[in-house]
Design a protein around this nucleic acid. Structure first.
Lengths: 89, 89
DNA sequence: CATCATTTGTTCGTATGTATC
DNA sequence: CGATACATACGAACAAATGAT
């Protein structure tokens, strides 16, 4: 999982930087499909940011189709390889 | 609850327009006493404005005696019928 | 079935930076 | 310059669902 390379001085919002790092891990397979994506708490500790910022990043991941969230369970990497909309299993 | 009739071109500040719409709902009973007043998030979505603007509107409602806010709980319609300042119940 | 830890959901409080009028 | 408005970010508190024990 990506280290902490957050630049608070960058014009790029922190939540976008975090999202980009997670997406990179998804792209290179560090984060497997239907698994992972650390919890919000884990991400706040990993990147040293507020939970609201982490949630913003995760929301972005969902909007971009990289992940899906199961309420009170966690957020998982979405399978973007299958052409058919079967998703679940 | 009021639709979205915000006019960004109007000389009347957006936060005042929103406050007026909420007040109208209080006046006509759409928003019951000691209940409602949508959350800040709900209001930002409903009117398509920034949270800061919504908070400005809610602050105005408080100042005008139309509502009271319980930290981390929500904002409620104040009972303006009772003459005595009992507020609670 | 009850309890507990984990995790996301929700809500308000506060601050900063930028832009516009 | 001040009021207004948007976007971002951190802080704090509590609610609710889930799963393990």
């Amino acid at each position: 999982m990506a280290e902490r390379e957050i630049d608070h001085g960058s014009p790029t919002p922190v939540y976008r930087q975090i999202a980009a790092l997670i997406i990179a891990d998804i792209e290179n397979g560090t984060l497997a499909v239907n698994r992972s994506v650390p919890s919000e708490l884990a991400l706040t500790q990993r990147f040293g940011v507020a939970r609201a910022t982490v949630r913003n990043a995760v929301r972005f991941l969902r909007e971009e189709g990289y992940a899906y969230t199961v309420p009170h369970r966690g957020t998982y990497v979405k399978d973007r390889t299958s052409g058919t909309e079967s998703g679940t299993d």
